[in-house]
Design a protein around this nucleic acid. Structure first.
Lengths: 96, 96
DNA sequence: GGGAAGTGTAAAGTATTAATTAACGCTTAA
DNA sequence: TTAAGCGTTAATTAATACTTTACACTTCCC
């Protein structure tokens, strides 16, 4: 089902992965990103791209999937908040 | 693990969900998208956004997750093909 | 033959978003 | 007081999705 309400922004989660005492500047350098870009992500002002997910995976030893999946959940949740035209289900699913 | 090599573009998969005989034009109308946009998706010339995933979910009775996840896998695979600076793992994970 | 419908694609325009570098003001620690 | 780190803004560049309009092509049907 993959239910989840109000999934966290990936940046919040990434925060928890940064080793104690590591500066944002250091992390940005390690990832080959600018300090501004990483700061934006960590403060939920930018999202994680496929490219960034791959960098995080290499750096942290996680799957890239983890990050891209998290971003997807977040995006879906945000998009669901916005108005959208009513869409009629293609067929009334008749089970019985 | 979520391993997958060469994951299909979501548009290819969407193709299979369209009922026999339904025209692209009809499907686009049902989804509230322009014909051009849907055609691009089906021909793998555009991706599926969170908004589009929600429309597909409503229309087809699937989860939105399915589509956004598929797009994520596709994006990751494409991104992985491109060059990226070498990134040193943060710590050599010493298990023993 | 000739029209109508459906399709793929291209072009032009709008909007969003991620990325960069440079710069500013703030806080904290030496 | 200086230096480092941080968050944030601004200006720029680059993608990408989406729209409408338009064109060329095929297929089907009279």
């Amino acid at each position: 089902m993959s239910r989840m309400h109000n999934p966290p922004h990936p940046g919040e989660v990434l925060r928890e992965w940064l080793p104690e005492g590591m500066t944002v500047t250091e992390a940005a350098n390690a990832l080959g990103l600018s300090r501004v870009t990483l700061s934006k992500i960590l403060n939920t002002h930018a999202g994680i791209t496929a490219d960034t997910a791959l960098r995080l995976a290499k750096w942290l030893g996680t799957s890239a999937d983890l990050w891209i999946g998290m971003q997807g959940q977040y995006d879906l949740w945000q998009a669901a908040k916005k108005p959208r035209p009513k869409i009629r289900p293609i067929v009334a699913k008749l089970a019985a």
